[in-house]
């Protein structure tokens, strides 16, 4: 899932400082699960901004709504009537949701309340970690199910580099060396020989370096 975190309230307040009525749109997808932009967070943010603006003697009127998903046009249609009277829309979705809202509501000032951080999962309640680099060409079958693209700080394909020590990465003692983990797992699986293959440079056209990507399933498209 996509992991996001809320920006400081003051930063969000600055984006809408000249607005009198604002629509806060939460998203019931990933950002609800990572507790950044669900219904509850949306209402907390709206309430915080109402208090803040009242203290500044510039009261703000808020409307809140949480879409099933902001990354699907069909779920943001529901906002059509709500946006009419507002000066701005604050999206509590990932960067995708913000853009979908901006595309649909062309004459509205649409701003992000969250920083979209990474895709990953939860290790315990309240802790999430990055697991996939979205490279578009998965290599997990070569690396024992541990992603070297995002979990190695240098995205090295034939690691570990010389900075790996005591299982940790050279950038921090709090960061595991992905290649140590890969080595350990491949050893446990009796597949160490697979690591002897020199991995060629990646085809980065399948990642962001090839420009914005698109995925199509023609069999489900209906004209």
């Amino acid at each position: 899932m996509i992991i996001a975190q809320q920006k400081p309230v003051k930063d969000i307040a600055a984006m809408i400082s000249d607005c009198n009525k604002v629509l806060f749109v939460g998203c019931a997808g990933c950002v609800t699960v990572c507790l950044a932009g669900g219904e509850k967070e949306t209402e907390i943010l709206a309430s915080s901004l109402r208090i803040m603006r009242k203290l500044e003697h510039k009261p703000i009127e808020t409307v809140t709504f949480t879409a099933t998903r902001q990354c699907d046009p069909e779920y943001i249609v529901a906002l059509d009537n709500m946006v009419q009277e507002v000066d701005a829309i604050v999206s509590l979705a990932c960067g995708v949701g913000v853009q979908y809202l901006a595309e649909r509501f062309k004459d509205k000032w649409v701003v992000p309340a969250l920083d979209t951080k990474f895709i990953g999962g939860a290790t315990e309640h309240g802790v999430w970690e990055e697991k996939c680099g979205l490279c578009g060409d998965c290599v997990l079958h070569l690396t024992g199910g541990i992603c070297p693209i995002i979990r190695c700080s240098k995205s090295i394909l034939n690691g570990p580099c010389g900075g790996s020590q005591y299982g940790k990465c050279e950038i921090s003692k709090d960061v595991d060396c992905a290649w140590q983990l890969i080595y350990d797992r491949m050893t446990a699986l009796g597949k160490l020989d697979k690591l002897m293959e020199i991995q060629p440079p990646k085809d980065w056209t399948k990642s962001r370096d090839g420009g914005p990507r698109r995925a199509v399933r023609e069999d489900v498209m209906i004209g």
Partner: peptide, 8 residues
């Protein structure tokens, strides 16, 4: 934390 952040 929120109340401090927003100046309340």
């Amino acid at each position: 934390q929120i109340l401090d952040e927003i100046g309340f």
